[in-house]
Design a binder for these strands. Structure first.
Lengths: 358, 358
DNA sequence: ACCGTTTCCGGTACCGTTCTCGAAAGGAAA
DNA sequence: TTTCCTTTCGAGAACGGTACCGGAAACGGT
């Protein structure tokens, strides 16, 4: 009677009284422990009662509370990821890859964006720490110049995995998953050489980022291996996106301008192409172009862009996998060296480097 | 002695003993209730003790447990969002807008991607429900043809806000934030007409989506208002992305082919341009192009794409705002009509519709 | 008939908060 | 002095689970 009334009231307020493990227990005339065990599929519970529980669960549409569970088990089954910009397709895809794997492993993903700001990145780490995620994946912002915030997180007991954007130097002990930037760049230059381009310039990114360095290294060694001397002025770095036009102008103004440009990534490549085409420079006849991180856009551009493909989804999945492994058995405990996974790249040839005759 | 040992052990295992409200209480010789109150900045606690608590918090680096808090307060301060594809810049930006607002309001965002699959979308709703989010924002997948899953969520007491992609018909009672598709399309067509284009075709999307319908409607009324009859064969729908080339060929094969194409969105516009340019059709001289949802790419294409800008960030923020309002006071309780917020669009003129002479 | 094992289950103490209730202390008002 | 508010705080019960410790049947072997 009293209960019915309370029930009615609850319904009225639409603050739906969630069914709990206790309701199940009472209905079945067993203890909460038994129900809990049944739900976790523990070995020491009779198959019949287990079945009965499952049926009642179905009937009452019971949902177990992650919250309560997490509170006692000290695990939230949430992991966080911080990327510089969600809207960049590469990161979007990487995240999709993580999601897929994590969901299927019973984990959940909390996504944060640093907007390429170091301060925001630190705040995000704090936030995820506050929310007691079980682990953290991160791709650094361009402003990030040290690991202090990540080391802090690690000291708090949080497993951290870096991916794609990391800092140079290997004295840090973070597991990482990287793309094979150097050999990707190498392939790009080889390809241009094969097409008959000889005067190859490179527009790179901020010098403190590993990807910039690696790609530049690949560029250099490919040229060296081909016996071609580096031309001063052919290697440029940009700090802000806006500059690209200027840099291209610098190249064109050179006494001996290049006949091909290798761009650090696709957006930069697009900016280069736009600038060149609007100046009447023909691509690929007068200038060959190769980018990096081919997204869907590279095929849609005209001319379509040759680009070193980064398997972004695979990278995401790989990072997630590594993180879960780290959560299960931290390398700091097992004493094993932190893993570094290198994902291979693949050159996708488009029209932007297809010079008609060699 | 004993405690020290335990402490040492804990440290050794790196299962960092988190400092709790109890530790604070003991150290300060007050009760947990008092500490709790101080932390929540309740009015009935002496300023001095409040200060003492805050200081100790600082010193011990105490973090309050969201988990425990949520367990009793029935609020997780997490909200979920489901989008068809995180890697699409429009959604990425919308999410960024939501994040920003939500974080600043003390909420957290859990992001899910349906990959344009209805089944996945349903699973995502389940997942978020399981995780007891306080609210849900969603942009429907192309496969979604009804609201049953959302109605279920709403019946469970979960506030739901739709954005961008919704279903036609207004008998549902969900609050929504939409872009002004119709007038956006109208503006696009007006613009083309002003530029002297007369034979304007439209490549639209799946017919059951509201955005398709609205944009098509804008297209039609703009032509009608200009006294131009609709040409049969000028209005096409695509189901899969791949088809765009075919559709363009159909248009070109028409006895009287169009001199401009209005695309339902930018990716489609890019595909159209790529196809046309590779066939030697000159843009904008022989064919004008206008897209929808200008991202950063529209300026980078050559020729740059004229496009109806959707303020994606603003939409995200608006949706988040609406959701929080819904969480604080559900419209179902206050009896007020669910809000529908329409965000205005803006035409960004590029080169793709800049015919030299009118 | 006795005793050691299994098999299955119940009781209870948490996990880290918030919330409700009421009580002590210190005036102000009577 | 008594009465009655304020202000400030403490005790203890939740919240929905899990983990640990036992204990009662049921079973088989001797």
């Amino acid at each position: 009677m009293e209960e019915e009334l309370a029930n009615l009231h609850a319904l009225y307020l639409m603050k739906k009284k969630k069914v709990t493990i206790k309701h199940l227990a009472r209905k079945l005339n067993v203890s909460v422990s038994t129900v809990s065990r049944a739900l976790r599929d523990a070995p020491d519970v009779k198959p019949e009662t287990k079945k009965a529980v499952l049926e009642l669960v179905e009937e009452l549409n019971y949902k177990r509370s992650f919250l309560a569970r997490s509170l006692v088990s000290k695990r939230t089954y949430n992991v966080g990821v911080i990327v510089p910009d969600i809207a960049v397709p590469f990161f979007g895809n990487a995240i999709a890859g993580m999601q897929e794997y994590l969901h299927q492993q019973g984990y959940n993903l909390i996504i944060c964006s640093s907007n390429e700001e170091f301060e925001k990145e630190k705040k995000n780490v704090e936030l995820l720490l506050d929310h007691q995620v079980d682990g953290l994946m991160i791709s650094l912002s361009t402003q990030t110049k040290d690991y202090t915030h990540l080391e802090y997180a690690r000291d708090e007991g949080l497993p951290v995995v870096l991916f794609d954007r990391v800092l140079p130097g290997q004295q840090d002990n973070f597991p990482k998953v990287l793309v094979d930037d150097q050999s990707g760049a190498y392939k790009a230059i080889r390809h241009l050489l094969e097409r008959g381009y000889r005067k190859i310039a490179h527009i790179s990114g901020p010098e403190h980022l590993v990807i910039s360095r690696q790609r530049t290294a690949g560029y250099k060694t490919a040229l060296e291996n081909a016996g071609i001397a580096l031309t001063p002025g052919y290697l440029l770095h940009f700090d802000m996106e806006g500059q690209v036009g200027e840099l291209v102008d610098n190249l064109l103004a050179l006494p001996d301008p290049p006949d091909a440009i290798f761009a650090i990534n696709d957006p930069v490549a697009f900016a280069i192409m736009h600038h060149l085409l609007s100046k009447g420079v023909r691509i690929p006849e007068e200038m060959g172009i190769v980018g990096f991180t081919g997204g869907p856009m590279s095929k849609l551009y005209y001319p379509s862009l040759s680009s070193v493909r980064q398997p972004s989804r695979a990278m995401g999945k790989s990072a997630a996998k590594m993180l879960l492994k780290e959560i299960e058995s931290p390398s700091s405990e097992t004493g094993s060296k932190p893993k570094i996974r290198i994902i291979p790249t693949e050159l996708e040839v488009g029209q932007s480097s297809q010079r008609s005759k060699v």
